[in-house]
Computed example of a mutant assay.
Amino acid sequence: MELSVEQAAELRELVNSRDVPADIATRGRIVLWSGKGRRRKDIAELLGVSLPTVDRWKARYAERGLAGLEGERPGGAREQMPARVRSRVIALTRMTPPAGTGLSHWSTRELAKYLARTENIVVSWHYIARIWREESLKPHRSGTFKISKDPAFAEKAADVIGLYLAPPGGAVVLSIDEKTQIQALDRTQPVLPVAFAATGKRTADYVRHGTTNLFAALNVTTGEVLGECRPTRNGKDFLTFLKKAVKPHAGKDIHVVLDNLSTHTTWEVKEWLSKNPHVHFHFTPVGSSWLNQIEIWFGILTRQSIRRGTFSSVHVLVKQIRDYINSWNTTAKPFTWTATAGEVLAKARLVATNMKKIVNNNSN
């Protein structure tokens, strides 16, 4: 059976979670290994199950997704949640997580924890995952539309989109951001049934070897990317990369699209900007990093080069990223931005209105 990138990531999260019962993790591993092309006979032998068991859980997953791996619960039919709980899950999923959470988007587990902590609503992450599938909600997908609480959303969005649709003549537009804590994972460690029996714990099928931080700048006009991996990410690192990014465009006005990280507004950065008036910063609205085109490229890099890779060291990971950037630049093409500022603002107003209706209905 074939699995999408999102399905494989979801299954890996399930089988490596300490909060998931061992039987469900085993079912998830059956599906995950099948998706990787392992023979059913080998899967059955490694996990200590029968061939019909392998077939059953593959079929259940194909039919119902993760919910199909839960099996039949003893004691009758599954408990039905009130409609208001379902509505609340949907409403929160479509919103940007509150600033205090430190999250850029919801995961099923984080949303379940948030509901229990703040609203005394106790649901499992399986329940939330099922709702997401039924409603086609994918908050983890790059580009998912989120509502910004920035009071200057309209002005900032129009400013950034204006650069994409009608860049100043002769000027260079760079989209810059950092992808932090990219993990070097060795995904070759086997998981054997004996590990369960001896320790009572599931052994992860990967080993972490460290992390790196990727600074990247996308030339909006050409689609070319300049990238640099660093072990740290602070204001000094950002300024060093910024100087490197603008150096090839000396003598031109340079417009830089950024998000609202503190590392982008340190006093060193502000002092450098005052001495380089040809460089202009344009900040995306708070909670709206999806407006920054480099985020699109980060998503492509993750899907095509990092997510399924095996990296025995940070050095190997960094080389993989460098090779990918070099390959990308040989056939680089700019992203085509089609949405006008008016269209984005209209959608924002529509989503905000719908969310307000849902919240009001839940409170009645």
Rank of each mutant, 00 (worst) to 15 (best):
T118V: 14
H315E: 15
N292C: 03
Y206R: 11
H315W: 13
A184Q: 03
L11T: 01
F298P: 00
G287M: 08
Q80G: 06
R130V: 06
K41R: 15
S124T: 15
K201V: 11
L185N: 08
H280W: 08
G76E: 07
H264Q: 04
G251W: 12
E70W: 07
D23Q: 12
K275M: 14
E72L: 15
I306C: 01
G162Y: 03
F311V: 01
Q80I: 13
S148G: 15
I296E: 04
M1H: 12
S175V: 05
T310V: 07
S274V: 07
S305Q: 12
E155I: 08
R84V: 08
R27P: 02
S136E: 14
N276T: 11
Y61I: 03
G35L: 05
D253V: 11
N326M: 12
R29G: 01
S124F: 04
T118Q: 14
I294Y: 00
V20S: 08
D55R: 13
S313M: 07
S4Y: 06
P139K: 03
K149I: 10
P151K: 07
K357C: 05
G235H: 03
T101D: 10
R307N: 14
Q293M: 09
E155A: 15
A77E: 11
K333C: 06
N234H: 02
V359S: 06
S175K: 02
T353L: 09
G100Y: 14
P97W: 02
R109I: 14
A157R: 03
T212K: 01
S50T: 15
F153S: 04
K357E: 13
D177H: 00
G309K: 00
V15L: 06
L350D: 14
R29N: 06
T211I: 11
H126L: 03
V122Y: 09
A22H: 13
N276D: 12
L69C: 02
M1Y: 10
K275R: 15
F283E: 06
T284G: 05
T96F: 08
